[in-house]
Write a protein that binds this DNA or RNA. Structure first.
Lengths: 245, 245
DNA sequence: CTATACTTTGCAATGTTTTGCAAGATATTT
DNA sequence: AAATATCTTGCAAAACATTGCAAAGTATAG
C-alpha cells in the first residue's frame, strides 16, 4: 500500500468519525504503529488533521466534552464507575450525568451497554472493548433519545445486570418522578429488565417531584449523589434499603 | 510495445483503480521498472497522474479528501435535496455524503427519516419539522451504524417512498458493490423496502468495485454524482433505465 | 544506401526514502 | 506513586529513485 493511499484513508476516517486511534489505524491499514505515527505527523504538519496523544482528531473538532463540565456530575459519575464490572450487561439512559459516566469508562472494561440515547451511544462507541446496542425507535427532538413501543418491546427481551437512571426527581414521599410520560415508560421498562437499579441524581434533584412516577424508593438499589453518604438527608433512604454512595 | 501504448495503458489502470504500483506495471507491460518509472515521470509532468514513491496515483486522489471531495459531496447533496418532498418516508444510510444531505435539508420540509446511522440521525434531529426513527441494533465501531438482524427485521415492516444509499462502488459490470458484508445486507433490505432507490456516488466511486454486491444497476432508480448528466460515461446507465442527476 | 544525430531501453552503481524495531523518555491512567 | 500506554530517537534492512552509460532502435540528410 502506497503512503498516499494511507494518508487518504486516514483523512477519510477522521472526516467520518472526527477522531481516530493510532492502534485502530495500525490494524486497519496493516502497518506498524510507527508508520501510522509518521503519517499522522506529516498530515498534521500539512494542517489537515491535529495529532494528539494516542491518535488524531479533525482540525475543526469541537467535542461536546467541554460543554458539560459540571463538577458534581463528574463526581457522581466517578462514583458510579466503581459499580461497573467486565462481562456485565448494562442499561443506561441519557442525560448529562450518564454522558459523563460514559466518558470515563475505563479502557479495559469489557462490557455490553444498551441505551436509547444518541449522545450516550456516541460516547460509548469511543471505547474499544465495549459493545454498544442501541434501542431503536422514534427519536425525541429534545432529549435525543428513542422513545415509544419499540424501545419498550426490545427491553422486554433483555435481562441486564444493572441499569443507570439519569435525570429524574427523587423524594421519599413520591419516589422517583419525571416530567415526561414517555420517558417514564422507558425507565419503568428498564427497571423491570434489570437486576440492580442505580439512580444518579445531583442534589438539586432531591426532595422535589414531578407529575409522573417511575417507581418507589424501594425499587432503587443504589442512589449516587455528589454529597457525602453520611448526610442525614439519606437516613430515610437507608431505612428503605437503598445503598447510598 | 510503443511508448504511447504504454502511456494509455497506464492511464487506464489509474483511472480504474485510482493507483498503480510500479512493479505491477512493469510486469503488466513487460518492460523494466526503469522504463515504467520514466513513463510515470513523463505523465506526471503532463499533469495526468501524480507520481509517488512506489507507483502513482490519480491526480484527483489526494485533493479528494480535502477540498474536492467535500465540494462534490455538497454538490451531490444539493441535487439530492430536490428529490425530497413533504410527507415522504425516507430511508437514509450513513456516509459523509448523506451527512451533508442531512445538514442541508430545508427547514420547511415535513418528512419522516429512517436511518441506522448515529451521525446522520444526530444531524437530522437538528431539524424541527422532521421525524427521525432510528433503526436500533448492535452498533459497529467503525461506521457508527447499527447492523444485524434487528435492523433488517425492522426494515421489513417499513415501506418507504425513497431510499438514499451513500458510500458504495458502482460500475456497469458489477453493479453496486460494498466493502462490508453486513452493510450489504442492510442496503439490500433498504432497497426492498423502498419504492425509489437513489445512489449518491462521487465520481471516484464510479467504475470501481468491491467484494460484495448490493444490487444490479437496474435496481437503482436515480444516480446522483457531481458530474454533468450528459457525460458519456453515463450512457450505459441510461440504457439500463437509471435516471442521472 | 549510409552516416550521423537522436531517442529509447536496460543495466549497474550510488543515493534516498520508507519501514519496523528497540531503548529510553513522557504522558496518562489507576 | 506505580503501572500502562504512548512518544521519541536512532538505527539497520529493504524498497525505491537517480544517474551515467552502453546497446539497440529510429529518423533524417546527404
Amino acid at each position: 500500500m502506497l503512503k498516499e493511499e494511507r494518508h487518504s484513508a486516514i483523512l477519510n476516517e477522521i472526516r467520518l468519525h472526527n477522531r481516530v486511534l493510532l492502534t485502530d489505524l495500525s490494524n486497519l491499514l496493516m502497518v506498524s504503529e510507527d508508520t501510522v505515527r509518521r503519517d499522522l505527523k506529516e498530515l498534521d504538519k500539512q494542517g489537515l488533521i491535529k495529532k494528539v496523544h494516542g491518535g488524531a482528531i479533525s482540525t475543526g473538532y469541537h467535542s461536546h466534552d467541554q460543554i458539560y463540565a459540571h463538577d458534581s456530575k463528574v463526581t457522581i459519575a466517578r462514583k458510579a464507575i466503581n459499580l461497573l464490572k467486565s462481562g456485565q450487561v448494562i442499561l443506561i439512559t441519557g442525560g448529562t450525568t450518564n454522558y459523563e459516566l460514559a466518558r470515563m469508562i475505563p479502557k479495559k472494561l469489557n462490557a455490553t451497554f444498551i441505551t436509547p440515547s444518541l449522545s450516550t451511544a456516541m460516547q460509548l462507541l469511543s471505547h474499544r472493548n465495549i459493545e454498544v446496542i442501541f434501542l431503536g425507535g422514534k427519536l425525541s427532538n429534545e432529549g435525543k433519545i428513542a422513545l415509544g413501543g419499540s424501545v419498550i418491546n426490545a427491553l422486554t427481551e433483555i435481562k441486564a445486570d444493572i441499569c443507570f437512571l439519569g435525570t429524574g426527581y427523587l423524594d421519599t414521599q413520591h419516589g422517583l418522578t419525571e416530567f415526561d410520560w414517555e420517558v417514564v415508560q422507558i425507565k419503568k421498562a428498564m427497571i423491570k429488565s434489570s437486576t440492580k437499579v442505580v439512580s444518579l441524581a445531583i442534589s438539586e434533584k432531591l426532595d422535589s417531584f414531578q407529575r409522573y412516577r417511575v417507581c418507589d424508593i424501594q425499587h432503587i438499589t443504589t442512589l449516587i449523589t455528589e454529597l457525602d453518604k453520611n448526610d442525614e438527608k439519606f437516613t430515610p433512604y437507608k431505612q428503605m434499603g437503598v445503598e447510598i454512595l
